[in-house]
Design a protein around this nucleic acid. Structure first.
Lengths: 260, 260
DNA sequence: GACCATATAG
DNA sequence: CTATATGGTC
C-alpha cells in the first residue's frame, strides 16, 4: 500500500500536475492539502475519470484537504468534531482535517496551521490546534490501531530538516513551543516514517517560492507521515519525489510517499 | 508599407501573441493600444530582439500606446501637448496618443476613450477628448500631409459596422454625439481605409469577452485607419486579421492592417 | 470575461 | 513568489 501526501497550493491551478503525477505514480491514496476551493467547485470529474474515489473538505480561498483513493475508503469524516462531538465546532471552520480507512489502516490527512510568525495570534491558534489534534488522536486510538497520519505539518522537528541558511532560532515552523506541541502529539505512539530509512539531513519537501529557494535547495522538510508502531514496523520505504517541484507553475511543496 | 493597429489589452499578458504575430506578419509599423504598463515595465527586450524599434507611452493599469517599427521613426512624440503646447497638460495624463514619421507618412496611434455609458462623466470626457483630437490634427496638418491615423476609436460610424443583435440606439460606441464628434474629426480630410475596399457589413475588429460574442460573431468594427486623401489614394488594401482572436487568452480586439 | 490594483496568506 | 478575494474598468 502506497500513501502519498502533497500540499498542492490550489487544486484548480495544479490539476494537470496532480493528474500527470497520479498517472506516473499509481499510489493507493493521495492526501492533498491547500486545495483552496469549496466542495462544489472541486474538479471532481477529472480525478474520478482516472478511476479514483474522491473525498473532500474544502473552503473558499484557504486551507482545504482531500483524499484521492484507488479503492473506496470507509468511515470517512472531516474535521475534529467527527471524533470529538463535544468540541466547539468553530475549530472545524478551517478545513484542515479529513480521514478515512483503507484495509486496516486509518489515514488522517492534516493541514496544520502555518502560524505566520512566532508570538502572533495565528501562532497561538497553531498551538491550540495541535492540542486539539492530540485529543482527536486519543479518541481515534480507542478504535483504530494502524494509523497513517500525514500531511503538511508546517513544523520541522529537527534542525537537520531545515537548510542551513536560515536562522532557526524562534523561526516559525521550528520554534520550541510548536516542536514541543508536535512531540506531545507524537508521544501518543507515532513515529516518522521518513526517518526509519534516512538519517541524514538535507532532504526537503517544501521550498519557498521567494528568493529562488528551490534552485538553491533552501528547503524544509515539513510534510510528514507519522505512523503508529505496528504500521511503522510494516513501512517498506518513504521517499520524497522532488520532480513535481521542477515543473512550470509548481506547488511550493512536493509529494512524499510511504509504502507498507 | 504596412501599418497595423491592435488593441492588445495588456502587452505583458499578450507578449507572446504579439511576437508570434509579428513573426508571421512582417509589418513596417504595429500600433498598440491598452498596453496597460508603465514605460519602465514594458517588455522592451523581446520586441527589440526581433529587430524592431519601440516607442512607448504608458501608465499604470489603464490605457497606454506603443509604436513598434521595423525602421527607426522620426519626430516621435506622445500626447496632444506635443503639438498643442498651450493645452492644459492634464489631458495627457491618460496615455492615449503617440505619433511618429516613417518616410513621408505620419502615423498617429490613438486609444480613444471608451466612454462607459452614454451620458455619464466618462462619456463627456470622450466627447471633449475628440474635440481636442480635432485641434491636434489641425496643428499637425500644418506640417504633415500624408497621415495615417489609426487605433482603437471605440466608435462604429455605421450601423453595418455592428452586429445585428444589439440595440444600437444610444448605445456607447454608436451614439449620435460621439459619431458626430468623430465625423467632425474626419471632416479635416480623413477617409476610412477599410471602406475603400469593402462595402458590406459584418466585418468586425472587436468582440466582447462576455457571452461568447466571438463564437457567435457578435462583433463591432471600432479599430480603424483614417487616411488623408493623398495617402488614401495610395492604399492598396486594408484587412482585418481575425486569427489572433481565435488563440487561447486572446485580446478582445484583433489586428487591422493597411498597405500602401 | 478578462484585465489590473490592492490586500491577505503562505 | 504564487495563490485567492474584492472592486473597478472596458
Amino acid at each position: 500500500m502506497k500513501i502519498a501526501t502533497w500540499n498542492v497550493n490550489s487544486i484548480r491551478t495544479r490539476l494537470e500536475h496532480v493528474i500527470n503525477w497520479l498517472n506516473q505514480n499509481p499510489v493507493d491514496v493521495l492526501c492533498l492539502q491547500e486545495t483552496k476551493v469549496i466542495d462544489a467547485d472541486f474538479p471532481r470529474q477529472p480525478i474520478e475519470k482516472l478511476g479514483y474515489h474522491l473525498y473532500i473538505s474544502g473552503q473558499k480561498a484557504y486551507n482545504g484537504v482531500a483524499l484521492i483513493s484507488r479503492q473506496p475508503l470507509t468511515d470517512v469524516s472531516a474535521g475534529f468534531c467527527a471524533f470529538l462531538p463535544n468540541l466547539d465546532p468553530e475549530i472545524d471552520q478551517q478545513k484542515r482535517v479529513i480521514t478515512g480507512v483503507l484495509g486496516d489502516v486509518r489515514i488522517i490527512n492534516l493541514y496544520v496551521p502555518n502560524g505566520s510568525a512566532v508570538g502572533n495570534e495565528k501562532y497561538e491558534y497553531k498551538l491550540r490546534w495541535l492540542k486539539v489534534l492530540r485529543e482527536y488522536l486519543q479518541a481515534i486510538l480507542k478504535s483504530d490501531a494502524a494509523i497513517c497520519m500525514c500531511g503538511d505539518f508546517n513544523i520541522a522537528l529537527e534542525d537537520k530538516d531545515i537548510h542551513d541558511q536560515v536562522k532557526i532560532d524562534n523561526h516559525i515552523m521550528a520554534s520550541v513551543p510548536e516542536r514541543q506541541a508536535l512531540q506531545d502529539v507524537l508521544s501518543l505512539g507515532f513515529a516518522d516514517a521518513f526517518r526509519k530509512f534516512t538519517a541524514e539531513g538535507g532532504h526537503f519537501s517544501w521550498w519557498d517560492y521567494r528568493t529562488s529557494a528551490f534552485k538553491r535547495n533552501l528547503g524544509w522538510r515539513i510534510d510528514h507521515h507519522y505512523l503508529t508502531s505496528a504500521l511503522y514496523e510494516r513501512a517498506k520505504n518513504c521517499i520524497i519525489d522532488v520532480e513535481p517541484r521542477k515543473l512550470t507553475q509548481p506547488s511550493d511543496h512536493t509529494p512524499v510517499i510511504v509504502e507498507f
